[in-house]
Simulated scan of single mutants.
Amino acid sequence: MLSIVDLIRKKRDGGQLTDEEIKFFIESVTTKRMQDCQIGAMLMAIWQRGMEAAEIRTLTRGMMVSGEVMRWPDGWKRLMVDKHSTGGVGDKVSLVLAPALAACGCKVPMISGRGLAHTGGTLDKLESIPGFNVQQSADQVRRTRLFLQM
């Protein structure tokens, strides 16, 4: 039987997590079986001890499929573009580039952050516009060219 405390201890002590242990960690986080302080402890252990390539691969793939995975229509294949950045002061590019690309017929799926330092994230800025809705259902996302998700 896997234990959250044992996983934290193993990683803290420099051990390599198995695929099963990493999947258990992700499932524990997404089902809220893991307390915030335990999540923090695990992330600190990972930050301090690092992860091997196999652990990173399993963690990344597990996180990727832990939520809803959207499928795009085949007709969008040559229209899909990505705009991603690490953010920063000003956040000037997303608010101009994404709508411009959408106006040119591109599909622009953007995952946007909140509360990034003192400037706020793109979603925070967009929510300051009266009536702007950043909460989009999967169906709404599929029906539009430009979509921002939290």
Score class of each variant (00 low, 15 high):
residue 87 G to L: 06
residue 143 R to D: 15
residue 8 I to M: 03
residue 89 V to P: 06
residue 84 H to E: 08
residue 83 K to V: 10
residue 30 T to G: 03
residue 87 G to M: 04
residue 23 K to G: 10
residue 6 D to L: 11
residue 31 T to M: 02
residue 127 E to Q: 05
residue 75 G to P: 01
residue 51 M to T: 04
residue 45 A to W: 00
residue 138 A to G: 02
residue 148 L to C: 11
residue 88 G to I: 00
residue 127 E to H: 01
residue 97 L to I: 14
residue 118 H to F: 07
residue 34 M to P: 03
residue 62 G to S: 06
residue 104 C to I: 05
residue 126 L to F: 01
residue 53 A to C: 02
residue 52 E to N: 02
residue 149 Q to C: 08
residue 112 S to D: 12
residue 123 L to Q: 01
residue 5 V to W: 03
residue 9 R to W: 04
residue 91 D to C: 10
residue 22 I to R: 01
residue 137 S to E: 06
residue 13 D to Y: 08
residue 114 R to A: 08
residue 84 H to D: 11
residue 138 A to W: 08
residue 146 L to G: 13
residue 142 R to T: 08
residue 94 S to A: 15
residue 130 P to E: 04
residue 91 D to I: 03
residue 21 E to G: 01
residue 80 M to D: 04
residue 119 T to C: 12
residue 42 M to R: 02
residue 123 L to K: 00
residue 124 D to G: 05
residue 124 D to L: 01
residue 133 N to D: 14
residue 100 A to M: 15
residue 125 K to T: 10
residue 93 V to M: 12
residue 116 L to Q: 09
residue 18 T to G: 12
residue 55 E to Q: 03
residue 28 S to P: 06
residue 112 S to T: 15
residue 150 M to E: 13
residue 97 L to V: 13
residue 49 R to P: 01
residue 4 I to D: 03
residue 20 E to Y: 10
residue 29 V to I: 12
residue 142 R to Y: 13
residue 126 L to P: 02
residue 116 L to I: 13
residue 70 M to P: 02
residue 11 K to M: 04
residue 53 A to L: 05
residue 63 M to Q: 12
residue 134 V to N: 01
residue 25 F to E: 04
residue 12 R to G: 10
residue 110 M to G: 07
residue 114 R to S: 11
residue 2 L to M: 14
residue 18 T to P: 12
residue 57 R to W: 01
residue 142 R to V: 09
residue 17 L to C: 05
residue 131 G to V: 00
residue 23 K to C: 11
residue 54 A to Q: 07
residue 130 P to Y: 01
residue 142 R to H: 12
residue 24 F to I: 07
residue 1 M to K: 12
residue 43 L to Q: 10
residue 139 D to V: 09
residue 139 D to N: 09
residue 96 V to C: 07
residue 73 P to A: 15
residue 31 T to K: 06
residue 110 M to W: 07
residue 6 D to R: 10
residue 102 A to D: 10
residue 114 R to G: 11
residue 54 A to H: 09
residue 106 C to V: 08
residue 16 Q to D: 14
residue 64 M to V: 06
residue 71 R to F: 11
residue 135 Q to E: 14
residue 27 E to I: 09
residue 7 L to T: 02
residue 26 I to L: 09
residue 103 A to W: 06
residue 19 D to C: 04
residue 144 T to M: 14
residue 139 D to Q: 15
residue 1 M to F: 06
residue 60 T to K: 13
residue 108 V to C: 07
residue 125 K to Q: 11
residue 131 G to F: 00
residue 42 M to P: 10
residue 75 G to C: 09
residue 126 L to I: 02
residue 45 A to H: 01
residue 46 I to N: 04
residue 113 G to D: 13
residue 97 L to F: 08
residue 23 K to Y: 05
residue 45 A to M: 02
residue 58 T to R: 00
residue 147 F to Q: 14
residue 54 A to D: 13
residue 39 I to G: 06
residue 83 K to F: 13
residue 3 S to P: 09
residue 132 F to S: 07
residue 123 L to I: 13
residue 51 M to R: 01
residue 103 A to G: 05
residue 48 Q to V: 00
residue 55 E to G: 01
residue 93 V to G: 11
residue 21 E to K: 02
residue 80 M to I: 15
residue 60 T to H: 13
residue 125 K to P: 00
residue 128 S to M: 05
residue 148 L to H: 07
residue 132 F to A: 10
residue 85 S to L: 05
residue 55 E to D: 04
residue 134 V to A: 02
